[in-house]
């Protein structure tokens, strides 16, 4: 029983990270219909920049803030330099562009940060907390808490603020949003900035647990995508549910089946969703116009 609880706890921890990555996918997808395969690189950059800013002498909170802001800026740059010039390009081109951007970022990270594995200390110590025979790291609470704060904050942003509603309106119908005077390019920029920032924050929170290296991004991107797809592409609630399910299934796979194949859980989910429910748990089927 305590074993099951243990797996659940670690599953929810990584699941919270996947949910944040899935949320990043969702935001960019809603704003621009682009699936941004570089989403995982934002997570890597969040952890990596924090490591180096911290090593350069910045206190941890400042280092983390630097990482989030710098990554958000990079997200904006990516939108301006790679996505906007290709507006209207077919899906195949957009896939190639975002994959290209992710490889580029990874290659740059390898040059700048090296190939080693990096880490920085946990925020509130490393002493595990005991719950009903299972243990949880204080850092896990930071991860879960951080995800809760972001999801609640975004929900408030989208439902309570004018800007948030403008973003929602753009995702519903870009042309109509333009006609009522919404600055849709700004909405695009904002979506990239926010989704890169959220990804980076996820990286900051999880790095003391999972450590980081220049090539961890792809795994985060895939699992975040699996989560987004499971929940229904473009649906923030779905991103949360999907992330937690992927995380827990992964932890169960590692615990009960094989730790070598824990990464396979996400792909099995992708295939299962594609076979049985392509629109995801919360998505609706759409009709094409001719």
């Amino acid at each position: 029983m305590s074993e099951l609880l243990q797996f659940l706890l670690s599953g929810v921890t990584v699941g919270a990270v996947y949910a944040l990555v899935a949320l990043g996918f969702t935001m960019i997808y809603n704003a621009s219909d682009v699936v941004n395969f570089a989403q995982g690189e934002f997570v890597m950059l969040g952890g990596m920049i924090t490591v180096f800013a911290h090593a350069a002498g910045a206190p941890l909170p400042l280092a983390a803030l630097t990482a989030v802001v710098a990554t958000a800026a990079l997200g904006v740059a990516m939108n301006k330099l790679a996505i906007e010039p290709a507006r209207g390009a077919p899906v195949v081109s957009l896939v190639i562009i975002t994959i290209g951007a992710s490889i580029f970022i990874r290659g740059a990270a390898q040059l700048i940060f090296g190939k080693q594995i990096h880490r920085f200390p946990a925020f509130s110590g490393e002493d595990p907390i005991r719950i009903l025979g299972a243990t949880i790291l204080p850092q896990s609470l930071w991860v879960i808490g951080g995800a809760v704060v972001i999801f609640v904050g975004l929900w408030l942003f989208f439902t309570r603020t004018l800007l948030g509603r403008a973003v929602l309106a753009t995702s519903n119908n870009r042309l109509a949003a333009q006609l009522v005077g919404i600055n849709t390019p700004f909405v695009m920029t904002l979506s990239f900035a926010m989704s890169a920032g959220i990804g980076a924050l996820a990286g900051v929170l999880v790095t003391p647990i999972t450590l980081t290296a220049y090539d961890v991004g792809l795994a985060f991107a895939l699992k975040g995508f699996a989560a987004a797809m499971l929940g229904g592409m473009g649906n923030p609630k779905g991103a949360l549910a999907g992330g937690l399910i992927v995380g827990v299934l992964e932890a169960m796979t590692a615990g009960y089946l094989s730790s070598q194949y824990k990464d396979a859980a996400a792909f099995i989910i992708i295939f299962a969703v594609l076979f049985f429910r392509p629109q995801g748990l919360f998505g609706r089927q759409s009709t094409d116009r001719v």
């Binding site: 790679a82 081109s93 190639i96 562009i97 290209g100 992710s102 490889i103 580029f104 290659g107 040059l111």
Partner: peptide, 20 residues
């Protein structure tokens, strides 16, 4: 060799934008 990923990624993005 060091720059392999960097070059690969840049080529993908640039070709798709300028030389579709």
């Amino acid at each position: 060799a060091e720059y392999e990923q960097l070059v690969l990624g840049a080529v993908m993005v640039l070709v798709m934008i300028f030389l579709r």
